[in-house]
Design a protein around this nucleic acid. Structure first.
Length: 595
RNA sequence: GGUCCUAUAGUUCAAUGGAUAGAACGAAGGUUUCCUAAACCUUAAAUCCAGGUUCGAUUCCUGGUGGGACUACCA
């Protein structure tokens, strides 16, 4: 629609002023609510071409397209703005044309599609997932859906940080204090059990440090020399050298954690195409580093540690191998990136990782570039802000970390309570009801998080997040179920089946607003993909839900006596529902048919 | 100290350089013999400060101020 308009506007300018205009001078935007019109041409940029005042220029162009472009039914000029109204019948025809598009708004993957790897989640295997991971998972999952809906080949991956000193800490604590506790013996979810030992390590370690400082040791020295820390370091060395006993313990505890993570991922509704493990990729990283060392891209210090010198890029020096030869986080990320490129030959690689790692990813791309990998230019750190609580940052020490499993349960509980109070789910089995509660609770959580610009830190207010009214996920779901309810009744009454019956219907203003929103959906998907912005999709879903609710309130659909208008309204509702469902799908939110 | 992110109603969030800054929650009031009131309608309420670029700045640039992150042989 707006492309057609743009062409006729360009034509108008060419005829009137005898000059071709470049694309960027024709600024078309949606007309603001308080003015009459559908699209608005901002005429200021054209004044140099017309050599006339804004009002006259607007009027001249407006008069021309009104006379020469059939789809324009009306124009008006306010200051430097030319407001253009598209004829109602044009909008109606536009609506019916959506039907001919097989998967409205979504593009499918083709031979020339860009390949994009999206990494998200990236858990450590020493503690359960928390609220911060939830933001990460939801963003990553939604991004992957948005990208694939815009026609890209998307590979969803996860890197599991399953090795390193932090893992050794929980292993050591379990060995020393665990008395053989297992998920089976304790009934604890595996990731929580392992997390408990990580916390225990920290507690006992602090005690040891305190004891040492009391004996007169400096706090730095004490931190180095506490037996637990020495033990953890020793364990890491054993692990890297392949010690069987250590590996067995590691395998066992990791398997507990993975079982726990699977439950959380499933509850959250996210999945991956390929999961990488740091324990596999760090070796590749070490090889890369050693190889680059021989090419003198990196250098070795006297103590044997290996570094990248990035001072010419105005950054610091970066450690890549410790003096004892063990790998650090950066080492494995180098390896992971190269392995992934070998696996998928990606054009782009998006890392969904918190903004506290901005530096890390800047360095990662630089080092890969130095090593000679041209594709490193395709690496993109999708950096998102922290999640804070109303009382401030989450601190594990103070026990204010919001656990992912708990949170999901609480949202479902709230949905259950609310739903039972409203009592609209009669006739469903308990199992069906539970499935609906879960969809609603998760929608509240997901929408609450995804509607916020990812770059910004966000405040997670538990009281607000479980609100199901207003600008929330359940509000949008509710709109969808209202539509389904109408469609079901229409179907039962044999109405709305004839889509050719409304070719003469002239839609009213509210209906045109809805058609416009539906019409926007395909370009919205592309924009969200280009901008990597689930928030854009969330806002869109809310806009159309709000618009439909107003329509639903102001007009009757099934009660309309004119059969053609009724059929038209049923069809319009159907399309609005479809777009809401697709929009929510892009956010990873499921819709219930009733609620 | 250095680098990066950020600042909009009481609160949580919107606004490709365009018109009178838009929602939600909260506050006050109203709507149900009518397709689901988890809805709809009305009212009050905001661009951190100072410069600059521009016909036009919440948006871009510079400098302040407040908040946050990073600057580990942690991840």
């Amino acid at each position: 629609m707006d492309i057609l308009l743009k062409e006729s506007l360009a034509g108008a300018v060419a005829v009137l002023y005898g000059k071709e205009v470049s694309e960027n001078l024709l600024q078309i935007q949606k007309t603001k609510k308080e003015f009459t019109g559908d699209y608005t041409l901002v005429v200021f940029p054209l004044l140099r071409i017309s050599g006339k005042s804004p009002e006259i220029t607007g009027q001249e162009i407006g008069d021309y397209i009104l006379a020469n472009t059939p789809l324009v039914s009306e124009i008006n000029v306010v200051k430097g703005f030319l407001n253009i109204t598209i004829s109602s019948s044009e909008w109606r025809d536009r609506l019916t044309s959506f039907d001919s598009e097989p998967d409205f708004g979504f593009s499918s993957e083709g031979k020339n599609s860009e390949t994009v790897v999206v990494e998200y989640s990236s858990p450590n295997t020493n503690k359960p997932l928390h609220l911060g991971h939830i933001r990460n998972n939801l963003l990553g999952y939604s991004l992957s859906r948005i990208l694939s809906a815009s026609g890209k080949r998307v590979i969803r991956t996860n890197i599991v940080n399953d090795r390193g000193i932090h893992i050794c800490k929980s292993m050591l604590a379990w060995k020393l204090f665990g008395n053989g506790e297992t998920p089976e013996s304790s009934g604890k979810k595996g990731d929580h059990l392992v997390g408990d030992y990580y916390v225990m390590f920290d507690k006992e370690y602090k005690k040891q440090v305190a004891a040492l400082t009391e004996k007169g040791m400096s706090s730095d020295e004490a931190a180095e020399n506490a037996p637990l820390m020495a033990g953890a370091r020793e364990m890491l060395l054993k692990w890297e050298s392949g010690d069987n006993e250590t590996l067995d313990l590691w395998h066992m505890m990791n398997s507990w954690v993975y079982a726990g993570f699977d439950v959380t991922y499933k509850a959250l509704g996210v999945e991956f195409d390929k999961i990488y493990y740091e324990s596999d990729t760090f070796k590749k990283g070490k090889e890369l580093v050693l190889e680059a060392l021989t090419r003198e891209i990196l250098y070795k210090k006297e103590d044997g540690s290996v570094w990248a010198d990035l001072t010419s890029e105005k950054l610091d020096q970066k450690l890549l191998l410790r003096s004892d030869g063990t790998a650090v986080y950066m080492t494995q990320d180098l390896g992971t990136a190269v392995i992934r490129h070998d696996d998928f030959n990606f054009d782009k690689h998006i890392y969904v990782v918190g903004n506290e790692q901005n530096y890390h990813f800047q360095v990662l791309a630089l080092i890969l570039g130095k090593m000679g990998f041209g594709w490193a230019e395709g690496l993109h750190h999708f950096s998102y802000g922290m999640v804070e609580l109303p009382e401030g940052k989450m601190k594990s020490r103070e026990g204010t970390v919001v656990d992912a499993d708990d949170l999901i349960d609480e949202m479902t509980d709230t949905a259950r309570l609310m739903s039972q109070e409203l009592g609209k789910l009669e006739g469903f089995s308990e199992g069906e009801k539970e499935a609906i509660y879960k969809k609603i609770g998760l929608a509240a959580l997901k929408y609450y998080i995804l509607k916020v610009d990812p770059k910004k830190n966000m405040t997670f207010n538990p009281a607000e997040s479980i609100d199901f009214n207003g600008n929330t996920g359940p509000f949008i779901q509710y709109t969808y179920t209202r539509i389904q309810s109408v469609l079901k009744k229409a179907n039962e009454g044999g109405m709305g089946l004839n889509r050719n019956s409304f070719t003469d219907v002239i839609p009213n203003a509210k209906e045109i607003s809805l058609i416009k929103l539906i019409n926007d959906f395909p370009s919205l998907v592309n924009e969200a993909s280009r901008e990597l912005s689930p928030a854009l999709v969330a806002n869109y879903c809310y806009d159309i839900a709000k618009e439909f609710n107003q329509y639903y309130h102001d007009y009757t659909i099934l009660g309309e006596s004119d059969k053609n208008i009724r059929d038209f309204r049923i069809y319009l509702s159907d399309m609005a529902g479809l777009v809401i469902k697709k929009g929510l799908w892009l956010l990873g939110i499921d819709v219930p048919e009733r609620m």
